[in-house]
Design a protein around this nucleic acid. Structure first.
Lengths: 182, 182
DNA sequence: ACATGTGAAGCGCTTCACAGCG
DNA sequence: CGCTGTGAAGCGCTTCACATGT
């Protein structure tokens, strides 16, 4: 009770047990030989190493279905990511309430993200608006961007961009199907 | 006109030019030295190699905001991925029309995906329903699964699963912020 | 001149295999 | 005896650098 082995962790994560041990060893060898890892301590060590003990303020730009999905995603709040702003350029959406927040105009993006100390911007706009939004986020001093749009955005040095391309994900599956047929 | 260099392609994709050339070389060396790649031919070669010339039928299970986002995602249809089924277990959603399709009951999932020759299943359900859905998809003969749920699903040999974890994506950004402060 | 194609080197993640420790 | 911690090997992707071709 209270302990878990690298083998068990590997099973749950769908990876190799040696990888689990090597990765956890970077936290400082808190496992007990012959026993495993103490779950609560491990949880704490991981949260500490990943920086999940400090809350991060997040803004989402582009309140379509994907933006709404992220705004209401329970996994975010759990790790201390607080959505503090929702922005769109569609007048029909402004004033709508999503996840307890009112949708605001992108015109207010720079000022609002500055005022609220937003550290992470999530771009869920169509492709043609993504670069413009990224520029605004950079201008507002946002250092991290999660880009769900279908284009690669260009950003000043020092801003960290991570792209998730849903079209690519499904294309990979299509490719594997293609590889294994005929 | 009609040609593009590895340098230009690399710029657009945000990668190294040598990588572009090496990757494209696997298609069979259709570039012209001193000139570049003929755009339309390149497009065709890529579509052929990735298997995008054949249409793939897709079912989406879990019609929340994320499911709806994917159902209406323009990038899918463009590459020949046809959404032919939307499933949910919430009676209130059944009969609703999303992207020209009526939402159906998950009870009909196995029969419907078999009948319609679904090859790719997209899981956008909450964590607690994901394994059950995956089992149903596997039972229906679906060979490829795109899993957006927050759990790792266990699947019979021969089924290809690809997981996209939105929580992980934002955690990586949080980690980088953590690394670069104090 | 200019841009491709590619052998070789580089790099980092993954896995192996076993010594070390409880 | 069981499970961790880790040096070393393995592996595949990325980048370099330049020979090759037009």
């Amino acid at each position: 009770m209270g302990h878990i082995s690298s083998e068990q962790l590997a099973g749950r994560a769908g990876v190799n047990a040696a990888k689990v041990r090597k990765d956890l060893s970077y936290l400082g060898s808190h496992g007990v030989r012959g026993v495993g890892y103490e779950v609560e301590q491990l949880r704490y060590e991981i949260r500490l190493a990943l920086g999940l003990t400090r809350a991060r303020r997040v803004a989402i730009i582009g309140i379509g279905n994907l933006g709404r999905a992220l705004a209401t995603y329970p996994g975010f709040r759990q790790d201390g990511f607080r959505v503090v702003g929702l922005f769109d350029n569609d007048p029909a959406k402004m004033g709508q309430t999503v996840a307890d927040l009112e949708v605001e105009s992108v015109e207010d993006l720079v000022a609002a993200t500055r005022d609220r100390g937003v550290e992470i911007g999530v771009i869920t706009t169509p492709a043609d608006a993504a670069q413009e939004v990224a520029d605004a986020l950079a201008a507002a001093g946002v250092r991290s961007i999660l880009n769900f749009s279908s284009v690669v955005i260009r950003i000043p040095e020092g801003v960290d961009v991570r792209r998730v391309d849903l079209a690519t994900e499904i294309r990979v599956l299509g490719y594997h199907l293609h590889r294994t047929e005929s």
